[in-house]
């Protein structure tokens, strides 16, 4: 069999047709949606992670409906479908590796679910029902795309430090580089972690810089400078990292030093962020976990420096 014949066979295979059509559909829909709604760049609504993958699964099921395909094969082909969609997001949408790793459980589960829902739908051969389901999904997609999306959250953590507030304060405003090993799995696989903080002056209005492991710098401005008690800084500029890409904006950070009256201090770290990826029930779990680990990496370092 020559190359031409092989290619012809591949293109005519229902498996390949289903996967290709599903991916073309997904990218067309996302492309149309982005061009119609340029006011919200970076915002990815829940439909893009839920409805589109499910429709992709249903599309493949339509192509596979007359083939004698087993459940395991449907799963395997759906996994390939997901991998292609994820790779295309990496190459064409510029999403980062970790970002795609985070989104992949949603994509895998909804594409597989869509393929099995599609199989059940097309077995019944009830065209009215099938059209109703697909129309409902598209309807939800349109309504969701046109709705306003805003989500802000605050994450708070605290740590006990065996040092007075005055000793802790010296390492809160700015601190020397962190040399401790990463122990959070996302940091270990390449997500940037905080490394050091510098400050232009120790006073209100001073510029603060938070430097991350890959060299990225968050520019901050001190908006509250209550010595030995409270430091608040607003993030005025943050890097356009492919892993973040405007999906999350860190707005503000705060350190509260509570004097326990026995030579120890409770250090509280607060961060506020806006999330631009939805559904929040999924992404907020990740955002909270990452923020919490950023907090603890910094706060454990402050503890180490203060207790020295």
């Amino acid at each position: 069999m020559n190359l031409k014949e092989t290619l012809y066979k591949v293109v005519n295979s229902k498996t390949v047709q289903g996967i290709l059509t599903a991916n073309i559909f997904a990218f067309l829909v996302i492309g149309i949606q982005s061009s119609l709604m340029p006011k919200d760049p970076g915002i990815l609504v829940f439909s893009e992670f839920v409805i589109i993958p499910m429709l992709m699964g249903i599309i493949t099921a339509w192509f596979w409906k007359d083939t004698r395909i087993r459940g395991k094969q449907i799963t395997g082909h759906s996994v390939v479908n997901c991998l292609i969609a994820i790779s295309m997001s990496f190459f064409f949408l510029g999403e980062g590796f970790i970002c795609l790793l985070i989104v992949s459980p949603l994509i895998f589960s909804f594409i597989i679910a869509g393929a099995f829902i599609g199989r059940a739908m097309f077995k019944k051969r009830n065209q009215k029902l099938n059209i109703s389901i697909v129309s409902l999904l598209l309807g939800v997609f349109i309504v969701d795309s046109l709705s306003d999306h805003y989500h802000e959250n605050m994450v708070s953590d605290e740590i006990l430090i065996h040092a007075t507030p005055a000793e802790v304060w010296q390492h809160v405003v700015a601190f020397d580089p962190i040399y401790q090993k990463e122990n959070y799995w996302l940091f270990k696989i390449g997500m940037p972690s905080p490394m050091a903080t510098t400050v232009s002056e120790h006073k209100l209005g001073a510029n603060r810089k938070c430097i991350f492991s890959n060299g990225y710098i968050f520019d901050e401005k001190i908006v509250k400078f209550d010595i030995n008690k409270n430091l608040i800084f607003d993030i005025v500029d943050q890097p356009k990292d492919p892993e973040i890409m405007g999906h999350i904006d860190i707005k503000r950070g705060e350190f509260i030093l509570k004097d326990n009256g026995n030579g120890t201090t409770t250090l509280v770290g607060n961060s506020w962020y806006n999330l631009h990826v939805f559904p929040t029930w999924y992404y907020d779990l990740w955002a909270e976990s990452i923020t919490r680990n950023v907090h603890f990496r910094v706060m454990k370092h402050i503890k180490l420096l203060s207790e020295r």
Partner: peptide
Amino acid sequence: IIFDSLMRF
């Protein structure tokens, strides 16, 4: 159904 799909994966 989604949980089951994740389990299937």
